[in-house]
Amino acid sequence: MSAGEAGAGRDPGLQPERTRLAWRRTTLSAAVAAVLAVRAALHGGASAGAVVLGALCCGLFLAFLRVAHLRIHALAAGTPPPALAPRRATAAVLCAVAMAVCAAALVL
């Protein structure tokens, strides 16, 4: 089965829409984590290191936002929607992992 046969004549239904909303929800989760990171950084004296870590978490959220934005644009590009590139999935995961590392540094 070629890509053309797989994509042609099939009703995409609401699948791209649902996937778009899943990216939105996930971005929102990342925003909540980033807000908690900023709160942790500013709480209790706000040392220079903590502020840098909080800013780093904000940067990671922006990176995640960019990945989600690019993917949402790709989904809207046409039918059939292109598959998610592994590199993009890995980038999104690495943002989450880096945020957890910042969190561990803030907690300790």
């Binding site: 797989a6 994509g7 099939r10 995409p12 239904g13 699948q15 791209p16 649902r18 996937t19 899943a22 990216w23 929800r25 996930t26 989760s29 990342a30 909540v32 984590a33 908690l36 990171a37 709160r39 942790a40 059939p80 929607p81 598959a83 998610l84 999935a89 999104a92 995961v93 989450a96 945020m99 957890a100 969190a103 561990a104 803030l106 907690v107």
Partner: peptide, 26 residues
């Protein structure tokens, strides 16, 4: 491609779970 999109949504659901755990840690 609908199966690929479903797989992608499952991936995102796990990623949300991960972000929720990280938020829980904070």
């Amino acid at each position: 491609y609908r199966f690929s999109l479903a797989n992608e949504r499952t991936f995102l659901a796990w990623l949300r779970t991960a972000l929720a755990l990280i938020g829980g840690g904070f």
